[in-house]
Lab assay of single mutants.
Amino acid sequence: HAATELTPEQAAALKPYDRIVITGRFNAIGDAVSAVSRRADEEGAASFYVVDTSEFGNSGNWRVVADVYKA
């Protein structure tokens, strides 16, 4: 099962156990969220919340930071 994305309210009520950072070329924010979901799932997380997204220069590469939560 894939890790689910939390709302800001849900994330605020929970304590993350880790923070992950992924970088890559994403065509849309949805693609980045899917990549975070896969990584969170690999780490055994039940859910995640994207904290920050930023573009690296003009290369089209993105850096996505997310907190991950157990259950």
Rank of each mutant, 00 (worst) to 15 (best):
Y49N: 03
A71K: 10
I29W: 13
W62V: 06
D31G: 05
V50G: 01
P8D: 08
A32T: 04
D52R: 06
A3C: 08
A28S: 15
E5P: 09
N27S: 12
L14R: 10
I22A: 01
A11H: 04
E43H: 14
V64C: 05
E42W: 08
V36F: 01
N27P: 08
T7Q: 05
A45S: 03
E55W: 12
V36W: 00
S54K: 14
V64G: 00
A28K: 12
Y49R: 05
A46T: 13
R19V: 04
S47Q: 10
F56I: 15
K70L: 09
A13I: 13
F56S: 09
N58K: 10
A32F: 07
T7S: 10
R38P: 02
I29N: 04
L6C: 05
E43R: 08
F48H: 02
A3M: 06
N27H: 11
T4Q: 11
R63L: 13
A35T: 05
A40V: 06
Y69S: 00
V33G: 03
D41F: 15
K15A: 07
A11M: 04
A66Q: 01
S37I: 12
R39M: 08
L6V: 01
A71S: 11
D52E: 15
A45T: 05
V36Q: 02
V33H: 08
N27W: 09
K70N: 07
S54M: 14
A32L: 12
R39Y: 10
D67E: 08
V50N: 00
T4K: 14
S47Y: 15
I20H: 01
G44R: 04
E42D: 09
V51F: 04
G30C: 13
T23C: 14
G60L: 05
L6A: 02
V33N: 03
V64E: 02
R25E: 09
A66H: 01
K70M: 11
E43I: 15
F26L: 02
I22S: 00
V64D: 02
S54C: 15
A13N: 12
S54W: 11
T23S: 08
D67K: 03
P8F: 14
V33T: 07
Y49A: 05
H1S: 11
V21H: 04
A28I: 07
S37C: 08
E5Q: 13
E42S: 08
D52K: 09
G60P: 04
N61D: 12
D18N: 14
P8H: 13
T53R: 09
L6G: 05
G24Q: 02
A46W: 13
R39W: 11
N27V: 09
N61S: 09
A35C: 10
R19G: 00
G30I: 12
T4I: 14
G57Y: 06
A35L: 06
I22E: 01
S54H: 14
A12E: 08
R39D: 03
R39N: 03
R19P: 00
E42Q: 12
N27D: 11
A28P: 04
E9M: 09
D52N: 12
V21T: 09
A12T: 08
A28T: 15
G44C: 08
V50T: 01
I22V: 11
E42L: 12
R38V: 12
Y49K: 04
S37N: 09
F26H: 02
G60H: 06
F48G: 01
E42I: 10
A71R: 09
V68D: 02
G24T: 03
K70V: 09
I29M: 12
G44H: 06
G24S: 03
N27F: 08
E42Y: 08
Q10A: 08
D31L: 07
T4L: 13
A11I: 03
Y17V: 02
D31C: 08
A45Y: 15
V64H: 00
G60E: 07
R19S: 05
W62A: 02
Y49G: 02
D41T: 15
P16I: 03
V36G: 00
I20R: 00
L6K: 01
E42C: 12
R38C: 08
V36P: 05
F48T: 00
A11C: 07
H1F: 11
A40Y: 03
I22Y: 01
G24W: 04
A3V: 11
R25M: 12
S37P: 04
E5F: 06
D31R: 01
G24V: 07
T7E: 04
G60F: 04
A46F: 10
G44F: 04
